[in-house]
Nucleic acid binder design. Structure first.
Lengths: 342, 342
DNA sequence: CTGAAAGCGCTAACAC
DNA sequence: GTGTTAGCGCTTTCAG
């Protein structure tokens, strides 16, 4: 494969000149620039980023650490980031980061330590103090999605506020007998989304003077998880509410499937509201709070590239950019028809 | 950051010795090896893969080209490959490859040309002759998932056979009035999955002496896509079949949701079979043919690493490893209850 | 504006 | 077994 020396020889200039011409850094006469570019094209020259980064320290590649690839929110973020990065000429290297484990440590101690990237985006991972230090010590900018990280700009939605908003929507329709079905604190995801959404729910209910004991059912954070809990909760008329705030659209959809299977009409007999803006929301008539994963992804990339451009900002970059959630109405929420419990 | 020279100095040996001790290549006495390793740990030395690959040509990184990140099959493959690669110390760099477009070309001409990886895995992408040449010219092994690529080992299921099997299952239950709902040839995915599954369906139907005109309805290859077609097909009793072979589980689920919404009992009134082995199959009582994305991913990685280990194989590696599909019974298929059309 | 030379961090020959 | 030397492909002083 051709090296810059070949280009230089063909163009009749020195390696240094060819380098300047191709990279755009440093003075080159327009005439020689054209000659060099032509020569490069002729032999199909593509610079070796390895060699370049060895001297510049820049790799034109960014690392992404993420706990899941196949869950909707995460894959959506990933896809949007990939698009944005590719457009800027960056590679994206993926590190699937499990919860605390030897593999997790190896990502930090080995993979990330190799410094093959100019920056890191952490998606939905609450980094430990030690891990943040580790990353900072690499001297590479870091941007987060999903929740606050000390000394790191982060993009997120306000989970407490979103949960409160969703619950208040149901309350405003006249519901009093509302259940929250969401993640278990035990297998909490990072940034405590589960507890935060529960907190927002309780807050709204308390403010409205509603009872909350027995109003929360934990479930696995998936569609089948919601389905299973739905089957058991709806089977007993005594535990059947008039409305449900589900911690995610996937859970909400599982609940709707279970309800329909038991002959409960949604939204007629039961109102359901979720969070995410999942593409399936429409076909299940689900009202939802969009959290715009793609926008979060693009914003994270933009933030990272900005830091890369002017590292000066780094010192004081400790802010959390909170994206507003949008309430998207479909037809799954309506007033209570025949309140059974309140 | 510390370089190997620092380690060498601290251990009181030469750079080369330190390199040998750390990489395990070449003779080093156990005693010095320990000294070097201790020194490396002491200063937290991690080798720069950039510098190493500059001389060895190996990068310990593999590139993945893939058309979608957020569709179930693809994200599942991705996640399994990431796991397998990480375990072997490889980075995974992602290139989201759209259909023919300038961005697609740029992936080949710029990103892949940078040769930042030891090999490439192509997932669900039918590469053009030119693109295959392009990759071969890089001198890096290439492995595919999803369908045959000239001169490249590939892992796939046999789409025609799978479709035939699914259809025959319905036929064996006594159904005659079977519809196929699947992807449109117009926006065909790579490797012609759409047409191949249609072909398998037609073949089984013809063999059983069933009519097939009007038996195929195209739809978008998603859950909402199946839902929309389901609503229109099921609304008219004249077009309502006793059984359906859906080209994917997502389509199948959309169909089931639509059917239920129209008061059609699944599986009582309508049998549905899909392909994929989607995790939601159970909650929708869907019978499906598993195509094991995770196994395909792991196999692709293993194949690539094997080629990396002994490049000799490369010349004659033109085979297609066809993975068997497993019929997974849930409760969505049963004999016809009240055949309307046959 | 361009060229020559040094060197990024590492490994591979080849001496010793 | 270990050290010395050269050089991977590029960018970047620093002269000219």
């Amino acid at each position: 494969m051709s090296a810059i020396a070949d280009v230089a020889r063909l163009a009749g200039v020195a390696k240094a000149t060819a380098s300047r011409a191709l990279s755009g850094r440093g003075y080159v006469s327009e005439e020689t620039r054209l000659k060099v570019v032509a020569a490069a094209r002729e032999i199909g020259y593509v610079a070796s980023p390895n060699a370049a980064s060895l001297v510049t320290g820049r790799t034109k590649s960014i690392g992404v650490i993420i706990p899941f690839i196949s869950r909707w929110f995460f894959s959506e973020v990933l896809e949007s980031m990939e698009e944005a990065l590719l457009a800027e000429g960056y590679d994206m290297t993926l590190y699937n980061l499990p919860a605390a484990s030897p593999e997790r440590d190896s990502v930090f101690e080995y993979f990330l330590a190799r410094k093959r990237f100019d920056g890191v985006i952490s998606v939905g991972v609450a980094l430990s103090e030690g891990e943040v230090d580790h990353l900072h010590r690499l001297g590479r900018p870091l941007v987060g999605i999903g929740g606050p990280i000390r000394g790191v700009p982060t993009i997120a939605i306000d989970d407490v506020a979103a949960a409160r908003l969703a619950t208040e929507h149901l309350l405003s329709l006249g519901h009093r007998d509302i259940l929250h079905i969401g993640g278990n604190q035990a297998d909490e995801m990072d940034f405590k989304v589960h507890s935060q959404r529960l907190t927002g729910f309780y807050a709204a209910m308390h403010d409205a003077g509603c009872r909350t004991d027995g109003a929360f059912y934990p479930c696995e954070f998936t569609m089948p998880g919601g389905y299973r809990v739905g089957l058991s909760v709806f089977a007993d008329p005594r535990t059947r509410p008039t409305a449900i705030f589900a911690a995610s659209d996937e859970i909400a959809i599982g609940l709707i499937v279970a309800a329909r299977e038991l002959g409960i009409q949604v939204p007629a007999d039961l109102s359901v509201i979720g969070i995410d803006g999942h593409p399936y929301a429409d076909m299940f008539r689900l009202t939802t709070l969009e959290q715009h994963p793609r926008r979060q992804g693009r914003l994270a990339v933009a933030t990272l590239l900005a830091e890369l451009a002017s590292p000066a900002i780094r010192e004081e970059s400790d802010h959390l950019t909170v994206l507003p959630t949008n309430l998207v109405f479909r037809s799954s929420t309506s007033g209570p028809r025949s309140p059974l419990g309140g």
